[in-house]
Amino acid sequence: MENHYYANTMKILGVNVHYEVYEKDPSKPTLVLLHGFLSSTFCYRKIIPMLKNEFNLLAIDLPPFGKSEKSTRFVHSYSNMAKLVIQLVESLRIKKAFILGHSMGGQVSLVAAKERPDLFEKVILLCSSSYMKRISGTLKFGSYIPYFYLGIKHWLAKQGVLKNLYNVVYDRSLIDEEMMQGYLEPFHDNGIFRALNRMIRDHEGDLAPEELKRIEQPSLLIWGNEDKVVPVHIGERLKNDLPNSIFYSLKDTGHLVPEERPEYVTEKILDFCHAN
């Protein structure tokens, strides 16, 4: 049976959401893929080819990233993003799903799994954002200042895509022109900076330990030992708070595990999802 691929946009909660579907077999479960902060579905470019024969895949650009709308009206909180993911999954009439999230996408996955254990049967977390507090009052206040978004744009431009990739990849030899352009592309749209300004205002902090302990679905956690963004001790703590979880850490690997260790990540996902 051949894979059927299509990309589309759907209006959900007032915002246009870009998503990509790889359909293999309607009887197979769907694996929902959620990317991290300042990223897009591009981050899964190496594992999608290895997963698309085993699952139906739904890769989502969380607003305001990737090809999704850069709206200043949408509430860019984790709880609202999770609601958006749930509504998109239901609109596509998906009944059985596993959910996979990298970094910020991991936190959105956890919220979605907490809200809808009937829909998301298993959770996969790659260097997932966890235990971050609510944005400081000063920064939140700053987001209401006119043209604050220009400061965000200036800061990101000063960092540059190469410096940001150096921060998330352990083996810098993996960084090439295709990788740099792929992560830079969404930022050609100036609207993203205004939306990021709104995102600062809406950020509510990560799930508390007592909420994590109520997520009973089987959970797979994969971390890079050299992760500078979400250090490996965060993953170890998360493993202790999620009651039905397994944890793997990888030597000489940074934050961007789907890019750095695609074969290993795919193998663990397959083993985990196929286990009863």
Rank of each mutant, 00 (worst) to 15 (best):
K133M: 08
G224H: 05
W223E: 01
A82R: 00
K46W: 00
L84K: 12
K213S: 15
E20I: 10
I94C: 07
C43K: 01
T138L: 14
Y149E: 06
R172Q: 15
I192H: 04
N3Y: 12
D206E: 13
R261N: 14
W223Y: 09
F42D: 01
F120Q: 06
G151L: 14
L220Y: 06
D118L: 11
R116P: 04
S79C: 09
S128N: 06
G224R: 08
N56L: 03
Y248R: 02
A7G: 12
K70L: 05
N3S: 13
P243T: 06
I175H: 03
E263G: 06
M132G: 04
R116I: 09
L31D: 02
K67L: 13
V89K: 11
P29W: 03
I47A: 04
T72Y: 02
K52E: 07
Y144R: 06
R214A: 15
L207P: 04
G235Q: 07
E236M: 14
P64L: 07
G191F: 04
V265F: 08
L150H: 06
K83E: 10
G101A: 10
Y19A: 13
G142R: 03
F272D: 09
C43T: 15
L34F: 05
I200G: 07
K46C: 01
H154V: 04
W155P: 01
R237Q: 15
R172M: 11
E178F: 04
G137A: 11
L139C: 04
F65K: 05
I152C: 08
A195E: 01
Q217M: 08
S173F: 00
E211N: 12
Q87I: 05
F74H: 05
D61M: 05
S130D: 02
S39F: 00
L51M: 10
L119V: 02
N244W: 12
C127W: 06
D171H: 00
I222N: 01
M50H: 05
K67R: 14
G205T: 03
L184N: 02
G142C: 15
R93K: 14
I222G: 00
M180E: 14
R116F: 09
V32H: 03
H18G: 00
P218D: 11
R214V: 13
N53D: 13
V89N: 05
